[in-house]
């Protein structure tokens, strides 16, 4: 039990844990992408930039306003969500009736603007964010040491995914969202203000990305490039899983994190491209994606 294919068990578990953490972030982001796509028919290229913004919101709140880690888990998503409202109302909504490609290009431009702005203001180098004291320790599981913060990241992001899933699949508000995805004009004819709903959906989903960014701040360093590196991998996740279902997005995100972790153990040099290789395999074997229904 101590070695598997010549790899110490503890190392394997450690990498799987890291993979699970990455997977949690993939899940949080691809979940938001899937909801935005379902409701607004937009591929939100700026999703990575909003994740980065969440990290910086937490960092700035901590450094200049003295707002600690826990409140910033609320403050950062709210701030990012507000910017999302502005982007949706000012720019995105004017493109809904056009080819999807324009909204993709628009959000790409927004991503460049945000990344460029933060590079200009803060420089390219990563900035550390201190671990919250309550989670600085760890748990000895016997076979490995589990840092408390990493456990928290997994629990928190999966919790948020679960709550989001529940809200959409099981509540009245979620029924409005699902109905508006199918037939927005009829939902509007029932007396629901669909444009406002779209704005709030976008704000909520980029808020989720902001939450992920704040969650990531103590784990990785906060840097302007942190979002763009992630978003491309998340795009591959989305291609693999399809954007038809929320559960699909979460499951695909987590499993790809795990696959990445496993690659790191057995073929370390290929770990950076593991997700892309899976994408190629899926394209060859099941072109419409694992949970796919192409639009």
């Amino acid at each position: 039990m101590t070695e598997i294919f010549g790899v110490p068990f503890a190392v394997l578990l450690g990498q799987l844990l890291l993979g699970l953490i990455n997977g949690s972030f993939y899940a949080l982001l691809s979940l938001g992408l899937a909801i935005i796509f379902g409701m607004l028919n937009v591929i939100n290229f700026a999703h990575g930039a909003f994740y980065m913004l969440g990290g910086f919101a937490a960092l700035v709140a901590f450094n200049t306003l003295g707002i600690g880690y826990w409140p910033s888990l609320i403050v950062a998503p709210l701030a990012v969500g507000l910017i999302g409202v502005v982007v949706e109302k000012l720019l995105l909504r004017h493109l809904y009736k056009m080819d999807h490609l324009y909204s993709l290009l628009l959000t790409f431009g927004v991503a460049l603007m945000l990344e460029g702005l933060f590079r200009h203001l803060f420089g390219s180098a990563g900035k550390p964010y201190p671990l919250p004291e309550a989670l600085s320790g760890g748990i000895n599981l016997g076979f490995m040491f589990l840092p408390a913060y990493r456990a928290w990241v997994i629990v928190a992001s999966l919790g948020v995914c679960l709550v989001t899933w529940y809200a959409i699949e099981r509540t009245r508000l979620g029924a409005y969202l699902r109905a508006a995805t199918e037939n927005p004009s009829l939902v509007q004819a029932f007396g629901i203000n669909v444009p406002v709903m779209l704005t709030l959906t976008y704000a909520f989903c980029v808020g989720l990305a902001g939450f992920a960014g704040a969650l990531a701040a103590p784990l990785y360093q906060v840097s302007p490039g942190m979002g763009s590196n992630l978003i491309i991998i998340v795009f591959a996740v989305v291609v693999i899983g399809g954007m038809g279902s929320i559960i699909g997005a979460v499951v695909t995100g987590l499993s790809l994190g795990l696959i990445e972790g496993l690659t790191k153990v057995f073929v370390p040099s290929a770990s950076a491209i593991a997700v892309f290789l899976v994408m190629v395999a899926v394209l060859l074997l099941r072109p419409s994606g694992l949970f796919g229904r192409e639009r």
Partner: peptide, 17 residues
């Protein structure tokens, strides 16, 4: 009719405010 496929009967019934 405009019945929503992704909503069950009860959800369809309860949808309009």
């Amino acid at each position: 009719r405009g019945i929503f496929a992704t909503l069950n009967v009860l959800e369809n019934l309860m949808l309009p405010p």
